[in-house]
């Protein structure tokens, strides 16, 4: 078969790429979408299509960000929000892992709990805010409860699907090697469910950040959601943008850190490695 010349060239150039070039290409691909996003934002802001009062430029938002970080309370807002998300997700996953394991592993538990979980999973956490206020007031616990609710239901479903897919062969093998029930749980089930636990954690973190603003609608004094909320009532569009950028950045950094941690912890897992 005759291979067209241009394909050969592509193959060759890929092969001959030096490590430095590979590095450069990697970073270029990472940075490019952000550059494009900011450029598009800038273009829209200065094009005159939108009232300049309604759309600050990236530069203005960046300036405001620095200003609030240095002089204002932005640092504390970020801290408070991160704290709420971390506590909510931690508690949510703490409960989601055993419950997800139970319904994934035991058929009876599944029959018993599955309809309940799907009923509550369908309710958006925001819809529960009035009830949470009635029962828990408007203090810190109320916000954490909303985030707990969101992360529990996001996590439990990931956990359950993952556990249900575990092959029983590993349990059978360990029994024939002489493992007790406790050893099977600690030495077989825990490592096997680790990837799913970490995925559940990732999904829950995503959902929790998305629910954060809603949870901080509850008369919060501090937090990124509260910042956006109050900026909205005072028509401070640039501060709204600062809040959005901060939520996105913190969520992205947490996700990246979790992924790096996951890669270390489950090196054994068969994954399709992208070229």
């Amino acid at each position: 078969m005759i291979v067209p010349l241009q394909y050969l060239c592509v193959v060759n150039s890929a092969r001959l790429e030096t490590p430095i070039e590979k590095h450069l290409r990697h970073w270029a691909l990472l940075i490019l979408p952000w550059g494009m996003l900011i450029a598009a934002w800038q273009a829209v802001a200065v094009s005159g299509l939108v009232n300049p009062g309604l759309m600050p430029t990236p530069g203005q938002v960046g300036g405001k960000l620095v200003e609030l970080l240095l002089g204002g309370s932005l640092g504390i807002d970020i801290l408070r929000s991160t704290q709420r998300v971390v506590i909510g997700v931690f508690l949510g996953i703490l409960v989601a892992v055993p419950v997800g394991f139970l319904i994934g592993w035991y058929k009876n538990a599944r029959t018993f709990l599955d309809p309940l979980i799907n009923f509550f999973r369908a309710l958006p956490p925001i819809a529960l805010i009035p009830l949470v206020v009635v029962y828990f007031g408007i203090d810190e616990p109320a916000k954490v409860i909303i985030l707990f609710y969101a992360s529990f239901f996001a996590g439990v479903i990931v956990m359950y699907e993952g556990v249900a897919q575990i092959s029983p062969i590993f349990v059978k093998v360990s029994r024939t090697l002489g493992a007790s029930d406790g050893e099977i749980f600690l030495k077989v089930i825990v490592p096997l469910t680790m990837p799913h636990t970490l995925t559940a954690l990732r999904v829950a973190l995503g959902v929790a950040w998305a629910t954060l603003v809603a949870s901080e609608l509850l008369a919060a004094q501090q937090g990124l959601g509260a910042l956006i909320q109050s900026a909205g009532s005072f028509f401070q569009i640039d501060i709204i943008y600062v809040g959005i950028v901060c939520i996105g950045s913190v969520a992205l950094s947490m996700d990246l850190a979790l992924r790096a941690f996951t890669r270390r912890l489950i090196r054994w897992q068969d994954r399709v490695e992208a070229q």
Binding site: S167, I169, V173, T176, L177, V188, P191, W268
Partner: peptide, 13 residues
Amino acid sequence: GVIFQEYGVFPWL
């Protein structure tokens, strides 16, 4: 000791 058709080696070890 049982050796299964599908081996069952522990992938995490």
